[in-house]
Every structure is written in C-alpha cells, then in structure tokens.
C-alpha cells in the first residue's frame, strides 16, 4: 500500500513536507495503526502517538485522507491510496503526527470536569435513578481524542477562547448529572460570547467522532438549559 505522511522535525526541518512510503501489509495488519507500527520498523524516525490500540485511549487521533479519526479504529481495507496522513488540523505540530494538546486540555479543565456537590456525602454513595443515569449515556464515553475539536472551524478561528465540542460535551456531561449541584455556576461560566456561543452548528464534530457521540447535540442542550435557567 502507498502512504503519504506529513513529516516535520523541529530540530532539522524549516518547513514540513509530505513523505511517500510503500508498504506491504501482512495478514495480521487489519487497522491503519498496524500499518503505522510496521512502518515504524522501517523508518524509526516517524513519530506518532499510540497506546491502547483499541479506541479507548484516544492517543492516535490524526487526519486520515482529509478526515479526522483514530488510526486504531480505521480499517486498512477500503482506504483510498495513497493514504494521506496529517496531524490533527488546527493544533500546533510538535513533530510529524504529534500535536500539542495543551490548549485543548486547558479548555477541558476550565469546565471543571468533576462532580461538584457540597452536601454531606451519604454513607455509601450518591444514588441515581435509572432515568437519571440514562442521561449520561452518549456523554461519558468521550475519550478526549480531540477529533471533534480539531475538525471544528469555530475552534480553528478561536482556539484560545472557544471551548470546543469536546470540552462542551464534557461540560454537558456534568450539567446533566443529577448528583452535581453546580449547574448554575457551570451554565454561568458557559454563557459567554466565545466559550459556548462560537458554535455555528456546523456539526463536523458529530460527523467525525470515532465513538459515535454527538457534541453538537450536547451543545444544543446546554443552550436550552441556559434559556430555562434564565426564564
């Protein structure tokens, strides 16, 4: 198979370039990550992140033939050749396919991604009804791979101010949690011209999420919650 991969070494390159590779996948190579690991044995200077290789850690997010995805979940079969691999768009490149996610995680931390409940804790646990627990489905599964935020034009335009789809999905995960008591504070933080309302409902986030989640739906629910909160 043929691959064309974005290469940039800040220690030796002035500009990034695309490097072509020819690779003969073996029978066990089913996913794009398998091919990249095999390529790594040929060219050990090629840099990319990977860890769990089964779509849980979110490390190997990259732009695959123009669309963000996880290399470990992308089947080799059916990939158009040459397979063009680039780092996540809109993120500063550290080296090759590795991007700097500092800003992304700063936004994530800004929404306080943990339960806030100042009431006295019960003896065993804070219980939820099945209906309350059901509300968290489609939210808690986010693995923070950044495929959505990196594919969002609003995030490209204001990466320092717009929280982005991943952070907003996580924000709604805690807003909708029956055990959390900081809903008003969370909504007040998001009621800002940049943090939430830069979303133009382009829906690239929902289109590319490798876990099948819908950040655009979560963003819409936050807007509705804001309207309810202020009425």
């Amino acid at each position: 198979m043929r691959l064309s991969i974005y290469r940039f070494n800040p220690e030796s390159d002035l500009k990034p370039h695309m490097q072509d590779y020819e690779l003969a996948p073996e029978a066990d190579d089913k996913k794009l990550l398998d091919a990249l690991m095999r390529l790594k044995t040929i060219d050990d200077s090629l840099s990319f992140r990977r860890s769990c290789r089964e779509g849980v850690c979110g490390s190997d997010a990259m732009n695959i033939n123009g669309r963000n995805g996880l290399a470990c979940l992308t089947p080799l079969a059916g990939l158009k050749e040459p397979v063009v691999l680039r780092p996540l768009p809109g993120f500063p490149v550290i080296r090759d396919l590795i991007v700097d996610m500092t800003q992304f995680f700063a936004h994530y931390h800004s929404i306080k991604p943990y339960l806030i409940n100042d009431t006295a804790p019960p003896e065993r646990e804070r219980l939820q009804s099945p209906a309350e627990r059901e509300k968290l489905n489609g939210l808690y599964e986010c693995i923070l791979c950044a495929c959505c935020s990196s594919f969002c034009p609003s995030f490209w335009w204001n990466p320092d101010k717009f929280i982005g789809p991943a952070g907003l999905l996580q924000a709604y995960r805690f807003i909708s949690d029956s055990r959390d008591t900081a809903t008003a504070e969370r909504l007040a933080y998001l009621d800002d011209v940049y943090r939430l309302f830069r979303c133009r409902t382009i829906m690239n986030c929902t289109e590319v999420c490798p876990k099948g989640l819908s950040p655009s739906h979560a963003i819409e629910r936050i807007r509705q919650a804001l309207v309810r909160e202020s009425s």
Binding site: D191, L226, S230
Partner: peptide
C-alpha cells in the same frame, strides 16, 4: 445586551 445567550436568543 449582545453577549452570550442574549444575542443568540435575540
């Protein structure tokens, strides 16, 4: 008046 939710609702 034109910040955040108000502008969106308007």
């Amino acid at each position: 008046l034109f910040l955040g939710q108000r502008a969106w609702v308007l």
